[in-house]
Design a protein around this nucleic acid. Structure first.
Lengths: 126, 126
DNA sequence: TATATCGGTATACTAGAGTATAGCAAAAAC
DNA sequence: GTTTTTGCTATACTCTAGTATACCGATATA
């Protein structure tokens, strides 16, 4: 048995809290359709059917569900206009924009990571 | 029909590429155990059993699987020492540390988001 | 001989995320 | 009438992430 030892880690609460906070953010933006939806709303307000047309292959069920979650997290605002048939608009809130910094960092890292890893055939080239 | 219209969004390729890059990052760090593992490796090298002890309730199967993924993404390095029984050490790579900026932003946002949302009873208080 | 340790793998299961399809109410256009 | 539009919901399914449990070979320890 070789004496390999070094930094025999006490593991602090800190790390668990860190993980929780990161996971909270993760929960808000993960799911197959949240990013496409937020992406589509960058260009301004959109109605339900517009979002559907904008996001290929999304089902009404998923669009509805994800919009509801985004709304609960206050990233998206839903406005109902009393027309017939009902007009309902979705838009990114200012708070939703507070995520931009996070998303920007993730985009930067993801971009370079793809370049780095793609050569070894790990990521789907698409 | 009320003429509600404004920013009739042409939707660019840009947004899809953005979503892809963010998702690449998401794929690397999501999964139930990746953050706890990276957290445990902050304190230095660890052996398999040490990680198991450090991360309550993780199964050998998941630990092994997640470590393999982290290794494929070059965030973690696996070193085999020719002892008996074999000694195997895992450690965060310098490249793994390049994620720190992203994780920091996610932690910051997640922390304030929990404070913001918890009052409305959306997040599990834990 | 039996048991423990190390670093896992194999097999089978469960639960949750996502899909597919049909339908609804109310009015408008044909 | 019948069909179309809007913004969804209900039901049933599939597929994948994660869990539970047992086991492996080699060696050391009792």
């Amino acid at each position: 048995m070789i004496p390999i030892k070094q930094g025999q880690g006490e593991h602090h609460v800190c790390s668990a809290e860190f993980a929780m906070a990161v996971r909270d953010t993760l929960d808000v933006i993960s799911g197959k359709w949240k990013l496409p939806i937020l992406g589509s709303l960058i260009n301004g307000k959109k109605r339900f059917k517009e979002l559907q047309k904008d996001i290929p292959r999304i089902t009404a069920r998923m669009l509805s569900k994800e919009l509801r979650e985004l709304e609960m997290n206050q990233l998206v605002k839903r406005t109902v206009y009393d027309t017939i048939p009902a007009t309902i608009e979705y838009e990114k809130t200012p708070y939703g924009c507070s995520l931009d910094k996070v998303l920007f960092e993730m985009k930067e890292w993801g971009t370079q990571h793809r370049k780095r890893i793609i050569h070894k055939g790990k990521l789907k080239a698409e």
